[in-house]
Design a protein around this nucleic acid. Structure first.
Length: 482
RNA sequence: GCCCCCAUCGUCUAGUGGCCUAGGACGCCGCCCUUUCAAGGCGGUAACGCCGGUUCGAAUCCGGUUGGGGGUACCA
């Protein structure tokens, strides 16, 4: 058996988005290439449209793949190649097909075809098949689909798929201006690059017989095909850039780890066989089997992705976790001033946050109270915690106790102190800590309180307790007592 | 309309004629742990679309049906 030479193609896009479906295709291809010592993963940028030819768009593709672990650092990676560089070969091939009688020129407009066919468009009618038109401006080149028999596509995921030639119109392979179409350029490039395996989305299944016909007309053996089921949204429709969150970059920005994304994507349509799901890439590669991929469409379930991401985050070492959080803490989007950020304090509190966040960006609301001059008050939290008879009483007692230099400033001691204050008010610790938590961090939920206070320090803690008390007094002045 | 694909818990899947009283994971619910929230532990909820065959036996094979989806460009 020959070595796998698979090709992955991406069209550059002005939005710069890299679709998660494309990511999954790339990953499946990558796994297959890595399975074999000389397996090639050929990246081709399909930029035939002059309008699509912008280097920065290509960078986005390369960067996205690289994030997933697919890059030239690995010897299986080849490219990127640019389709536009092969335009000459495409035209040559188109002409050769015409010379050989496998294609003919056609000057029909779509309207003319529709008119001939009575009402609506149902494919080209073969009007120019035998008119013997010479090449000329405005004349498209159509492939002459053989009359008899079906073309059988042997798909590694779906098995035999038959397409009757009667149902395949004589498709255009070069435009009136001579420029080649995707269907032709693709085949020519694949022949040129020695591609013998093509794994792509199901949306390409219907033009596969056309491409296979082209391969044969060119005197080559078609590659082995595999058409992946589409990835769908909750409404079971193909993920669309307009409606759905499909950009790999947006997941990256939210703080999904590449490892988790890769793991999740690999499991969309495929399973290792045992009951394991969380599995590093290196272990998946030898197990991956394209024939074992499910043929039905798969829903992209962000909830499950989140769960995977949480697992991966928790598996990180403390140092690694802190390191991975840096972009959200030290980047331009951090809500505090750079000089107020204290990496030392973050390192101390990070382990407490690690099991509490599922995506990295969530680190910010968990630790912002440490770096902001004032906590960000969540109104609901405030109203819930500052109930009459609890709020002011707890805050007053805590402020007084904490301000006392005799109060040891250490988590355990602070806990004991607050517990004592709570008991005096007839409150369990769970209730007693709430007003303090909200006064200091702004929210009812968050990191363990006493460690947080220890890190915040006596001065800032007491100041916040008093500030909350003042606000309470101001709010309560006009409010009816219950 | 025409061509093609698909069909197991809400979701991702295991399952390739008996091991299935259908397994795992996410989600959801409950309990435990607990300073809030997580994490963790324990338990629970929930599926073979339908109708016919084939067979001693069908989630697994065949036909039909219904329902989804993809494609139908001088786009890629």
């Amino acid at each position: 058996m020959s070595e796998t030479s698979i090709r992955v193609r991406f069209a550059p896009s002005p939005t710069g988005m890299f679709h998660v479906g494309g990511a999954r295709s790339a990953l499946f291809n990558w796994a297959l290439a890595q399975q074999q010592t000389d397996g090639r993963f050929v990246l081709r940028i399909e930029d035939t449209d002059a309008a699509r030819n912008r280097p920065e768009w290509t960078d986005g593709i390369v960067r996205a793949l690289s994030w997933l672990g697919i890059s030239a650092e690995d010897p299986h990676f080849e490219g990127p190649y640019f389709q536009s560089a092969y335009a000459g070969k495409h035209r040559e091939t188109a002409e050769a097909l015409y010379e050989a009688g496998r294609a003919y020129y056609c000057d029909c407009t779509r309207d003319a075809v529709v008119e001939r066919r009575g009402n609506e468009f149902r494919g080209y009618d073969g009007f120019c098949r035998d008119r013997g038109l010479e090449p000329g401006p405005g004349r498209a080149l159509r492939f002459r689909v053989p009359e008899g028999g079906p073309t059988v596509v042997d798909d590694r995921i779906r098995g035999r798929v038959e397409f009757d030639h009667a149902a395949i119109e004589d498709f255009v392979i070069a435009r009136g201006d001579g420029s080649p179409l995707f269907v032709l350029a693709n085949v020519v490039d694949d022949v040129e690059m020695g591609v013998n395996e093509v794994i792509r989305g199901e949306e390409h299944l219907s033009n596969t017989p056309k491409q296979q016909l082209l391969w044969e007309a060119l005197g080559h053996t078609p590659p082995v095909w595999a058409h992946l089921p589409v990835i769908v949204n909750e409404k079971r429709q193909k993920l669309s850039k307009r409606r759905d969150k499909v950009a790999l970059e947006s997941y990256q920005e939210e703080g999904y780890l590449a490892e988790a994304m890769v793991n999740y994507l690999m499991l969309l349509g495929w399973a290792p066989g045992d009951d394991r799901e969380i599995m590093p890439w290196a272990q998946m590669v030898p197990l991956f089997d394209i024939a074992g991929v499910n043929s039905s469409s798969a829903f992209f379930d962000e909830k499950k992705l989140r769960a995977f991401n949480g697992e991966y985050i928790r598996a990180l070492s403390a140092e690694e976790f802190a390191e991975r959080c840096r972009p959200w803490l030290e980047g331009p989007d951090a809500p505090w001033a750079a000089e107020d950020y204290d990496p030392e304090a973050f390192r101390a509190i990070a382990p407490l946050a690690q099991s509490r966040i599922a995506v990295l960006s969530e680190i910010v609301p968990n630790v912002d109270f440490l770096f902001l001059a004032e906590p960000v008050f969540d109104e609901k939290s405030w109203n819930k915690a500052m109930k009459p008879g609890i709020g002011a009483e707890m805050l007053t007692a805590a402020a007084e106790r904490f301000a006392d230099e005799k109060q040891e400033w250490e988590a355990e001691a602070l806990k004991a102190a607050l517990e004592e204050i709570g008991t005096a008010q007839g409150l369990k610790l769970g209730k007693a800590q709430a007003p303090v938590r909200v006064a200091v961090t702004g929210r009812t939920v968050g990191l363990p309180l006493f460690e947080s206070l220890e890190l915040l320090g006596r001065e800032r803690t007491v100041r916040r307790l008093r500030a909350a008390l003042e606000r309470l007094a101001a709010d309560g002045a006009g409010a009816p007592a219950e």
